[in-house]
């Protein structure tokens, strides 16, 4: 199981790094093509916006795995360990419910709607469904990471943590 999770982590990190590299190259190319070559690229603006959507949502899942999303932990920190475990589990469950309903289900609705109705992006001409697919993808990943966190809270000591 740990191996599978490690692979998943590497996969997410890989896409995130790739998207960061691409977004930089895209915008640098936009400046060069307009200012140096005087032949402005017509798709860079849209491509970089779509990459940002992917970075933001996929990166959100990555950041959830790293537990770096901003929160307010002053009260929970002061609770006795046993009670804290229950609160932290509740938090994970709330995040999972939100991701399941909104990102996974709502996002999948949006993807199927835009794919079914064949909505095409203005400049690149790609299907908007492919852009939106990062919504359910990120939702599914955060749900996985939430379950892993719950597992780590209850079933594992330090060494067995996933």
């Amino acid at each position: 199981m740990r191996k599978v999770i490690r692979l998943l982590d590497q996969f997410v990190a890989g896409i995130l790094m790739l998207a960061m590299t691409l977004i930089l190259l895209t915008v640098v190319w936009q400046v060069i093509s307009r200012y140096v070559l005087a032949d402005p690229a017509s798709v860079t603006e849209e491509l970089s916006r779509f990459l940002l959507i992917w970075i933001g949502l996929l990166g959100a899942a990555f950041a959830y795995r790293q537990k770096v999303h901003l929160g307010f932990n002053l009260i929970v920190e002061k609770q006795p360990p046993e009670r804290r475990k229950y609160i932290l589990t509740l938090v994970e469950l709330l995040v999972i419910i939100f991701c399941a309903s909104t990102l996974l289900f709502g996002g999948a609705q949006l993807v199927s709607l835009t794919l079914e109705l064949e909505q095409i992006s203005a400049a690149l001409g790609v299907r908007m469904g492919y852009v939106y697919i990062v919504l359910p993808l990120s939702g599914a990943l955060i749900i996985c990471y939430g379950l892993i966190n719950i597992h780590n809270l209850w079933l594992a000591d330090e060494e067995e943590a996933w």
């Binding site: 005087a38 017509s42 603006e45 849209e46 203005a122 400049a123 001409g125």
Partner: peptide
């Protein structure tokens, strides 16, 4: 000729 003109984001406009 040679003027950079802002256009809407669509192949037809470009």
């Amino acid at each position: 000729a040679g003027m950079k003109i802002r256009v809407l984001n669509s192949p037809t406009a470009v």
